[in-house]
Simulated scan of single mutants.
Amino acid sequence: MIASLIAIIAREALRFVHQRERFLAALVRPLVWLLVFAAGFRAALGLSIIPPYQTYITYETYIVPGLCGMILLFNGMQSSLSLVYDREMGSMRLLLTSPQPRWWLLFSKLIGSTAISILQVYAFLAIAALFGITLPAWGYVTVLPALLVAGLMLGALGLLLSSFIKQLENFAGVMNFVIFPMFFLSSALYPLWKMAESSELLHDICAANPFTHAVELIRFALYVDLNLPALGWTMLATALFTAAALWGYDPARGTMRRKT
């Protein structure tokens, strides 16, 4: 089982190395938001002192955890796209018919994609530091477990979606109806109290969004703090998404019965 885990992670790493544009896209997307979008909202959006911040902060500083979550979210969806591609090419069927337990193979895939996502997040944080976005030194260490938990949750969501996507052409619809609503209806770009000022319903939707809790978990971890409610909700969402994905890939009950 360890050998299969290493092999799947190595395959994910090789695929990532050979797709340099994937790495660049993962960095360009949040950097555009950080340098362009944030510049336009810096003066328009006021931020009060809210935990974990001890003083007033710039808008660029506020959205950094959300942009870290963006990298994890898009990479999780990219991983699901690769699963759909592997299924169409037949390599997914070969993988799932190996003697290893199906849940272990999917978990190995999840670990591999999450590890790549974390590397991309640290690369983004390094570039952000060059532009003056300063964070506590220990925050770069304490954020690692938060990134792991959040990455597993979003990777499990991608795994779940891949069990229902039949063709690559359908992935664009998933991008529009899953990724963007999940990102924009969260605390990644705006504090929840700002949402409440405009609409209580919108605030409640954002508060129920699992991505919001993943972002808040990363936000507090970057400032060497632990947000226990965010950790609990993120882990619960991870368990639910993983269980649903395993059901989806179960040939006896799930959708993979019709696809493989």
Score class of each variant (00 low, 15 high):
V64T: 06
Y59K: 00
L34N: 01
L47C: 04
G90M: 02
G66A: 00
M92G: 10
D86T: 09
L94D: 00
M92L: 15
A38G: 03
F41K: 09
V84M: 05
S91N: 10
L94M: 11
T61E: 15
V64S: 04
Q100E: 12
V64M: 00
Y53L: 03
S82H: 13
Y62L: 03
P101D: 07
E60A: 09
R42F: 02
Q100Y: 12
Q100I: 14
I57G: 04
C68N: 01
L34A: 01
F74V: 10
I50P: 06
E88Y: 08
F37R: 03
Y53F: 11
T55V: 15
Q78M: 14
Y62D: 04
A44L: 14
G46M: 08
L96K: 07
P99C: 06
P65Q: 05
L47E: 05
S48A: 15
M70R: 00
I49D: 06
Y53M: 06
L67T: 05
L96W: 05
A39S: 15
A44Q: 13
I63V: 12
P51F: 06
G66L: 00
P101I: 10
R93Y: 04
P99N: 06
L83I: 15
T97Q: 14
D86I: 04
S79I: 12
S98R: 10
L73Y: 08
Y56P: 00
T61S: 13
T97W: 11
L72V: 07
N75C: 09
Q78G: 14
G46L: 10
L35P: 12
R87S: 08
P99S: 09
P101E: 02
G46E: 11
L94T: 09
L34C: 03
L67I: 03
P101N: 06
S79V: 11
S79H: 14
L35E: 08
I57V: 08
C68Y: 01
A39E: 12
V36S: 08
S82N: 13
G66W: 02
L34M: 07
R102P: 03
L47P: 02
Q100F: 11
L72K: 04
L72D: 03
P51I: 04
G76F: 08
L83R: 09
L96H: 05
I49A: 06
M92I: 12
A43Y: 11
F74Q: 11
M77C: 10
L67Q: 05
G46R: 13
L72R: 08
E88K: 10
F74G: 04
P52R: 07
P52K: 06
L34Q: 05
L96S: 05
L34E: 02
A39W: 10
Y53I: 00
L72I: 07
Y56F: 13
L94Q: 09
L47M: 06
G76E: 07
L35K: 12
Y85V: 14
G40C: 09
L83H: 06
G76S: 08
I49W: 03
A39N: 14
M77H: 14
L72F: 04
Y85S: 02
T97E: 13
C68T: 05
